[in-house]
Design a protein around this nucleic acid. Structure first.
Length: 756
DNA sequence: AAGAAGAGCCATTAGCGGCA
DNA sequence: TGCCGCTAATGGCTCTTCTT
């Protein structure tokens, strides 16, 4: 027998191999039945079964195969051919050409199969599967979510769809009509949509992929395939995304993953080892057979070398974080980087995240052991959800615009007309930025000058309410059994997108009654309850430790479930007024917060003194005045540092724990605090506590303190006012400030305990 | 001095699937 | 059908440094 003979036999359309392949191809092709196929109908179930019978034959009555006639000896090539022909005849299989000729739909299937190039693992690696599967599989599967994107399909014919920024609905409708009238465009859009839609259906099919739930992604399909195709002792190494480790809806896949994982190394592409975006995280995963949970892993790696060297490390020295002390991505090895995950680890993660089951708990990504201990401590606290939060995702930026709830229009807005977006907020900074008139892109915003912000200052928004006011009000989120408008209340709002690698992950602030927001911002409220609780919630959500719990299990967005798991301080804590006072003085930036201030006022606010520097202190009283909000940048920064220390103290986390969380997870914030690398620009405050703008710093870095007064003057982009920045310019040491504030609050707590 | 290249920062919104 | 929950194999801009 020659290779040519074997190839000829495999290529013979009437041979068993090609018959089976034809049926498998046709089955796959039916999923992709083209919507543009006008003449031919897809087969009915009976027609399909007929063809399977004609091509493959039916099981014959006799159990005997022609093979049996060869006895125990190994049949030769000739005899194998006879056996195949005989068995096919016995089963009633028809000549292939006649079967295909009679069925137009089968020819359509063949065309689809040619286009799609279906691959049948079981058929083409039959000998491997006969031995039990693959011993070793290595791969970088495609990471693709099949999504139907009609606009990008239209862009193939008309670039307008790709290059026009946020076109109006009317413009789109007009353009769409013109585009679809062009020859071939409808077919292109339909075929392109079919492909993505079918891929989603196949991956979502519970018979083919029982472990996949939630949104389909090709990499998850390949995980499942690799597991199925492995031999009982087989090992598979795959490089792919991490989303199934934190995806709320992927618990089945996560549970299966934990039992098969042997090694897991999570990388962030900051060193750009791969030519993809530098913020992309991915994992190198080594899988074995299903067994009791036990794998080794490390998170926040930047270079594979770190893993190998960490295994050899003796465990001495400072535990590494995300950045080293020169502000570079931390590649230092350390034994504590290598975590041995077993059932007890998953149970800890479950506790930290409040997950339903330890077997499918989302993953907690901690760089080192100190961080894990802090998380364990925080998991003991009450959670924000114990306040029974009401939630609003605001207007849907697309759907509600299409419904005519609002339009794109620049300008200052009364609070009742305000539609806020992410940049309007920063951590306890309502009105943080204002949209510029040009509205060019997501960076086209200007920071607010809090020093000159008027008592009746208003947000500048990119969206304005449209249509009649009654339906605008009625269509917005309503709360409770009485269906009260959410907009009636003060609320804690936060940017919905998690800035996992930014300065802070969770960016929340108090917003006043009247304000609406799009779904880039979420909010919660506590209708008809004491406003003090809401302020405490804001204080906790603004704290570094809350942020730390979110950063440890990174997700792309921060939803109600995630927000509800934030730790909450005790509402009867002796230092509560110190926390509330500081939080209010950061958030109550205009007279719109008057009633909040009045209702939460406590005599202790007036006697409470700042621990860290406060350069622009003004008297406060039970009524909101322009002096109530902290306005100077350093004063605001220091108040937040004091809040961070207070929340840590109230939650039972030590100053060391707080500093470790800061050092370990907040690389960008630490960069901004330190002048530890020439490439990084730290926050520099002048002698009056103002943040020195870059235009002044650029000169100062060249000339040092020889800088002239004119060069020290800059116009604030938010207010147009000129400020002269006074020397010396200096950074502030956040860790030292944490410790100072923490120690003083501890002392005040002890003093209170002594007097009461 | 001007342009190129590199690095860091800072932002979703569109669309899917589940469910009432 | 409409609402709700959820997620994303970045892109654009700006500043700095390097190169010509």
């Amino acid at each position: 027998m020659t290779r040519e003979q074997i190839e000829a036999s495999l290529a013979d359309p009437d041979g068993a191999y090609q018959r089976l392949r034809r049926v498998m191809d046709a089955w796959c092709a039916l999923w992709y039945w083209p919507l543009t196929e006008a003449e031919t109908e897809p087969p009915t179930l009976d027609q399909w079964l007929d063809v399977c019978r004609d091509l493959l034959g039916a099981a014959p009555d006799t159990k005997h195969s022609w093979m049996d006639t060869f006895g125990s000896g190994t049949p030769n090539w000739e005899q194998l051919g006879q056996a195949e022909t005989h068995d096919l005849n016995l089963a009633g299989a028809q000549p292939v050409s006649s079967v295909v000729e009679k069925r137009a739909w089968l020819r359509v299937c063949e065309k689809v199969a040619t286009e799609q190039g279906f691959f049948h693992w079981e058929l083409d690696f039959a000998t491997v599967f006969a031995r039990g599967g693959f011993d070793l599989q290595v791969g970088n599967p495609p990471w693709v979510r099949p999504v139907v994107d009609v606009e990008s399909l239209l862009a193939d014919g008309d670039p307008w769809w790709a290059v026009t920024a946020k076109p109006s609905e009317a413009a789109k409708a007009e353009r769409r009509e013109v585009a679809l009238a062009e020859p071939g465009v409808v077919e292109h859009v339909l075929d392109g949509s079919t492909e993505a839609s079918v891929l989603g259906d196949v991956l979502g099919d519970s018979t083919a992929y029982p472990v996949l739930t939630g949104q389909p992604d090709l990499y998850r399909g390949f995980m499942s395939q690799a597991w199925n195709h492995a031999s009982p002792t087989g090992i598979s190494g795959l490089i792919h995304m991490e989303s199934h480790f934190t995806d709320e809806k992927a618990s089945t896949l996560r549970e299966e993953t934990y039992r098969r994982l042997r090694r897991h190394w999570q990388y962030i592409n900051e060193l750009r080892l791969f030519d993809i975006h530098h913020l992309v995280t991915y994992g190198v995963n080594v899988y074995g057979s299903d067994r009791k949970v036990g794998f080794v892993h490390a998170a926040s790696l930047y270079h594979p070398d770190t893993v190998g060297r960490s295994f050899k490390h003796d465990g001495s020295g400072e535990e590494p974080g995300v950045k080293d002390n020169r502000g570079n991505w931390d590649q230092r090895p350390h034994l504590s980087r290598i975590q041995h995950v077993k059932e007890s680890t998953l149970r800890l993660w479950q506790e930290v995240l409040g997950a339903e089951s330890w077997t499918s708990t989302p993953m907690v990504y901690t760089v080192n052991l100190a961080a894990e201990r802090t998380l364990a401590r925080l998991s003991k606290a009450h959670r924000a959800s114990s306040l029974r939060l009401e939630f609003s995702a605001g207007w849907h930026e697309r759907a509600d615009r299409e419904r005519g709830r609002f339009v794109s229009k620049w300008g200052e807005a009364l609070w009742r007309d305000a539609i806020l977006q992410g940049p309007h907020l920063y951590v306890s900074h309502p009105l943080y930025k204002a949209v510029n008139r040009t509205m060019r892109n997501n960076n086209d915003w200007s920071s607010t000058d809090f020093e000159s912000l008027a008592e009746d200052g208003l947000p500048v928004t990119a969206y304005k309410p449209a249509g009649d006011r009654a339906s605008y009000d009625a269509a917005y989120t309503l709360w409770g059994e009485d269906r009260v408008p959410a907009r009636n209340f003060y609320r804690v709002a936060w940017r919905a997108m998690a800035a996992n690698t930014g300065e802070r992950t969770l960016i929340s602030g108090l917003i006043p009654p009247g304000a609406a927001h799009i779904n880039g911002v979420f909010c919660v409220g506590l209708p008809n309850r004491n406003l003090v609780e809401l302020v405490v919630l804001q204080a906790c959500s603004s704290s570094l430790l809350s942020d730390f719990t979110l950063r440890a299990a990174p997700k792309s967005g921060i939803y109600l479930a995630n927000f509800g798991r934030l730790p909450l301080v005790a509402l009867d804590h002796p230092l509560l007024d110190a926390l509330i006072g500081r939080t209010l003085r950061l958030n109550c930036v205009t007279a719109a917060y008057t009633s909040l201030w009045t209702e939460c006022w406590s005599g202790e606010f007036a006697t409470d003194t700042a621990i860290l520097e406060r350069l622009d202190e003004r008297p406060i009283g039970p009524t909101w005045t322009a002096g109530t909000p902290l306005r100077r940048a350093l004063d605001r920064r220091n108040a937040q540092v004091e809040i961070d220390a207070l929340v840590a103290l109230m939650l039972g986390v030590s100053a060391d724990g707080l500093c470790a969380a800061y050092r370990g997870q907040f690389g960008v914030l630490a960069d901004n605090d330190h002048a530890r690398s020439k490439a990084k620009k730290p926050y520099l405050f002048d002698a009056t506590g103002r943040l020195v703008p870059n235009s002044v710093l650029a000169v100062w870095r060249k000339k040092g303190d020889m800088i002239t007064e004119e060069e020290r003057t800059a116009t604030h982009p938010g207010s147009g006012l000129d400020y002269v920045y006074e020397l010396p310019f200096a950074t502030r040491d956040r860790e030292a400030d944490f410790r100072t504030a923490y120690a003083e609050f501890e002392r005040r707590l002890a003093a209170k305990a002594g007097t009461s």
